[in-house]
Design a protein around this nucleic acid. Structure first.
Lengths: 345, 345
DNA sequence: GATCGTTGCGTTACCGTTAACTTTGTGCCA
DNA sequence: TGGCACAAAGTTAACGGTAACGCAACGATC
């Protein structure tokens, strides 16, 4: 008897049992005081709460999740964390989920398909209540796993493709088309495209594709493409713009895959003595916080990230509560600023 | 006997037992095939792996974590996700942890102390292997909880204060002082400070404090402060700059709490006909990706976020493996650009 | 050929919590 | 006063793994 050291006094993490022992009730009563307080006598409830406070008790959700039915985790899989591309989606999403006591488990694939599989598997191993993931284009095995998991899957950002369950986003092909249309309406004719277009960045590919189709439909010469596999940055934009103009001096408009690339392109054009917007128009995508603050202010497409984050949270909650899957299109806006406002058009 | 429906054929999530049953071995053997493959006969291991693949088996880490000793979760608590303030820290941190199969559980306090307590509690309830958190200034209850948790706590970004366990960052007071010194050396005398300085943003307060002390030490008139509680943005910077110049036309230098605020301030100054850097110098903090692309290019302080993320990951792994707590100072750099390069100094 | 260490697998006992039942106590009404 | 509903607590059995231990089969050793 005395050889069995329970060691309750040691600096071990307190459990329900510690509380129960101290208060002199059963483990289940303590559990109930947490989950269904009204089923426990007020006086007793108070004593239990006091003991929890005193021992700095924090429930063990590993055990709770294993035993119960809920897991309270929402997996969020993004393709990038750099710059503000998806940060504000995560921000609103996380904050909305927090109100329902759902925890975000984050994974960043960095546009790597193998990584995506590994990360999705890893997140699934936590038995999340739902998963929100960027894009609708995933490796077959990822789709298989997500489908087999039988939990709500919300695909964000892109809606153009085979949706697994529910999607919240927009059609990136149309964004590219709108960019082309805007440039054409502004009087530009020789359109080029620069930026980071990674192998697994289907959204960038779709925008480019939309741009090309719209340009071709308007009878314009073929879009000159100059892209890179590395991540977008001002430095990349600067280099690509230099090389582009060197090889294609006839270009009079540049569509950039992202604002940060456009920032660098603007710098390169200034160095080259090209006037924006009169000699060359520049349009981009993303609505970076600085887009309106560069010289000249940058025409860009503003996706409503806050709204996507918020609607994704709502979709997750709805699906958890049994609502049907659906696809929600979130509007974007082409913000016309000076960089495409040709005076002599 | 036949009344007991085990229902193994139903679309339920497969467990070790499902695999074991299908292969005809014990549960533990399947578990071993995962954790210690060399202890299982190759032929059998293959059959087990095949069954797992076929059934899309994903281990349940809730169970694993409850039973085993490790949890493989690292909690990451940031104060903001907007813009790129902490995104690249999270990016490098997450990516480095991934190599050791550690999952990031993310929480964003939005500079709200109550939220911080709630979030820390929530993260602790997942029994993480470690917690990385922004800042060294936390509410007493948060500190108590973190200390009581007996896991490695890495405080990031700021090192100036009472460190709970291990810290990776820098002293923000010195940043403010360096900003003042730079402005003074560049020939400015009437320094103002604008930006978002939230009640719980001790780092911003420290930078401001450093600026004031250094200005006073140089015999300059008192720093004019014009701050706001809302989050930093170009729009905020624009408004604050307008109001500042209206009330204090004598100002010849503005230190901004963040680059995005400076972007707006530059725009306001241009509107007001003030020339930067000749009439007014502008310096900021953060090294936003666009800082070098605005007009004029913005002088700012560049914290090494990638390095902080990487060193934090290393500190976490080291502490988990029993290394002693320590504080690591990560160097920052004052990037002098045109916005403080007064020609007639 | 008895002994022994090794390999390869099965048994069993938890981990901390929840959920379904069971038990006990209490007030109310017929 | 018996019966019954209901509230408040306890009992017990999972949940899906892991880890310590047990044990048979096997080859190597003396």
């Amino acid at each position: 008897m005395d050889t069995e050291i329970t060691d309750k006094g040691a600096r071990s993490v307190p459990t329900l049992a510690s509380i129960a022992e101290r208060v002199g009730v059963s483990v289940n009563t303590v559990s109930r005081a947490l989950r269904a307080p009204h089923t426990v006598r007020p006086e007793l409830r108070q004593r239990i709460n006091a003991a929890m406070e005193e021992l700095n008790y924090v429930p063990n959700r590993l055990a709770g999740g294993l035993s119960g039915t809920r897991s309270d985790i929402v997996g969020v899989v993004v393709t990038s964390l750099y710059y503000s591309e998806f940060a504000s989606i995560i921000d609103t999403l996380q904050s909305a989920l927090l109100e329902r006591d759902l925890q975000v488990m984050l994974a960043n694939t960095r546009y790597n398909a193998d990584q995506e599989l590994k990360l999705v598997r890893s997140i699934l191993s936590w038995r999340p209540a739902a998963i929100a993931i960027i894009g609708v284009d995933h490796p077959p095995k990822v789709v298989e796993l997500l489908k087999a998991s039988a939990i709500p899957i919300i695909e964000m950002w892109d809606t153009d493709g085979e949706v697994i369950d529910t999607a919240v986003g927009f059609d990136h092909t149309r964004v590219g088309a709108a960019q082309a249309d805007h440039l054409i309406a502004a009087g530009y004719r020789r359109i080029a495209f620069i930026g980071s277009v990674r192998e697994n960045d289907r959204r960038a590919q779709k925008r480019l594709s939309g741009l090309e189709i719209a340009a071709a439909a308007a009878g314009l010469p073929e879009v000159v493409k100059h892209t890179a596999q590395q991540g977008g940055s001002p430095a990349l934009g600067e280099r690509l713009a230099f090389e582009l103009i060197e090889g294609h001096p006839e270009i009079d408009a540049i569509a950039c895959n992202s604002d940060v690339v456009a920032f660098g392109a603007l710098r390169a054009l200034k160095t080259l003595g090209k006037r924006v917007p009169d000699d060359i128009g520049v349009i981009a995508f993303g609505d970076n916080e600085a887009a309106g603050c560069v010289t000249p202010p940058l025409t860009t497409v503003r996706p409503d990230r806050e709204r996507i984050g918020k609607l994704t949270a709502e979709a997750i909650l709805a699906r958890i509560n049994g609502a049907e899957p659906c696809t929600t299109i979130v509007e974007w806006e082409l913000v016309a600023r000076e960089s495409t406002h040709k005076k002599n058009a």
